[in-house]
Amino acid sequence: MNHDSYPDYYIADILRSTRLIALVGASPNPERPSHRVMAFLLRKGYRVIPVNPGQAGKEILGQPVVARLADIVEPIDMVDVFRAADALPSVVEEVLALNPLPRVIWGQLSVRHDAAAARAEAAGIKVVMDRCPAIEYPRLVA
């Protein structure tokens, strides 16, 4: 996949078929982008499980926080990553240890790591990077 640009149908299909999102790097701070995007996704009807080891056992926007992806006991459709780009390889490794594998890894704005994306894609996972579902959803789905 060319990660410099994505066809609209590729993004729209992901957003329409996704139900459960694991949001890595979720923040309880309403001023943080991850908090605002999580609120948006919840308003649009997605189930969102916040992932943040420092907040595990608490709630963000009424959703119980888990420490890591492996703590989620149901199949994840999409892993939405709010971490620095250099953290994406470790997130991909955590994703690849899941069974079943999520269908999508989504790197938020400025989150791009081509080698990590290639590793995920080699396992059959779709990858979107340097995009925000809260921007793409109104443009392509709503």
Rank of each mutant, 00 (worst) to 15 (best):
S5L: 04
E31L: 13
E59P: 02
S17A: 14
E31I: 05
T18F: 07
V48E: 04
V128I: 15
L41Y: 03
D114T: 13
M1D: 05
P89F: 05
A117P: 11
G124I: 06
I14V: 15
E136T: 03
S27A: 13
R68G: 13
Y6V: 04
A85P: 07
I21N: 02
H35A: 11
A87G: 08
I11D: 04
M1C: 03
R32Y: 11
V48Q: 03
E94L: 03
D114A: 14
K44A: 01
P50G: 06
S17Q: 15
M78F: 07
A122C: 02
N29H: 15
T18S: 11
L41G: 04
P7Y: 00
A56Q: 08
P138Y: 02
S27D: 11
L96D: 03
L88G: 10
E121I: 07
S90H: 10
K126T: 02
A87E: 15
L98A: 00
A85W: 04
L88Y: 09
R103F: 03
S27Q: 12
P75D: 12
A56M: 09
P89R: 01
H3K: 01
P133N: 03
F82M: 10
D13Y: 02
K58L: 14
D71K: 12
L96N: 04
L41H: 04
A12Y: 05
L96M: 04
V79T: 10
R43F: 00
P133F: 04
A22V: 11
G57P: 11
I105F: 01
E59S: 13
D13V: 00
R19C: 06
A87H: 14
A117R: 02
H35I: 11
M129S: 03
R103D: 09
P138V: 01
A122D: 06
V37R: 07
I105Y: 01
D80P: 06
A118D: 08
H35Y: 15
P75V: 12
L69G: 14
L20Q: 06
R112D: 03
K44N: 00
V79G: 10
P102N: 07
V141M: 01
